[in-house]
Amino acid sequence: MFGIGIAKGLAVTFKHFIETYLDDLKYFPRRYSELALESRQSVRGRGLFTVQYPEQERPVPEAFRFLPFLVYDIQVEGDTTRHVIRCTACGICARVCPPQCIWIVRAQDEKGKPLTAPAEFHIDIDVCMNCGFCAEFCPFDSIVMDHEYKLADYERQVGHIYDLQKLLRPAGYYARIRPTQYAARQAAKREGAAKEG
């Protein structure tokens, strides 16, 4: 009979409609709780699927990459704390960067001998393609891909050229957003040091 096909299709949409409310009952009365968010967003979820951003946020996985940042360690010696930038200005990140958006000035001592530290570090985030090569190939684990994506703003000419100050984050932050990677790289570092020692 003409119309059966359409009716069958409508049955599918009706099923979707009902499922949302059945699912709501399951989480009654707190249908927007953390638990509900997690299970409704998973492969086993059914019915309503919306993340109530900005009240709720969909957490990003550890591997998530947005823009790079530079890591510094906090060293405590007696009463003084020092911030030690891990970057040695070896330039691998600048050379592997596909759109060439990283600019590094290597520091020099008074005689003009190159030092293993950056004097300037710029990233043009409006050219960056978030590919993650810089972090992947950094031998010192000093450039890492950030999770922060809420970066929308009203101006780009100055604010979107990140300099050294804007790029620096403590190692603790790194350990917090990428625990597995941090642990693995630290272990590799210790192993390397042990071999040398």
């Binding site: 990003v60 970066l151 929308a152 101006e155 979107h160």
Partner: peptide
């Protein structure tokens, strides 16, 4: 004339929502 710039390549949907809120 641009009102809001959203960085990212591409920005995730949540980043776009953030730009929309801005």
């Amino acid at each position: 004339p641009v009102d809001v710039y959203i960085p990212g390549c591409p920005p995730t949907p949540q980043a776009l929502l953030e730009g929309f809120l801005r």
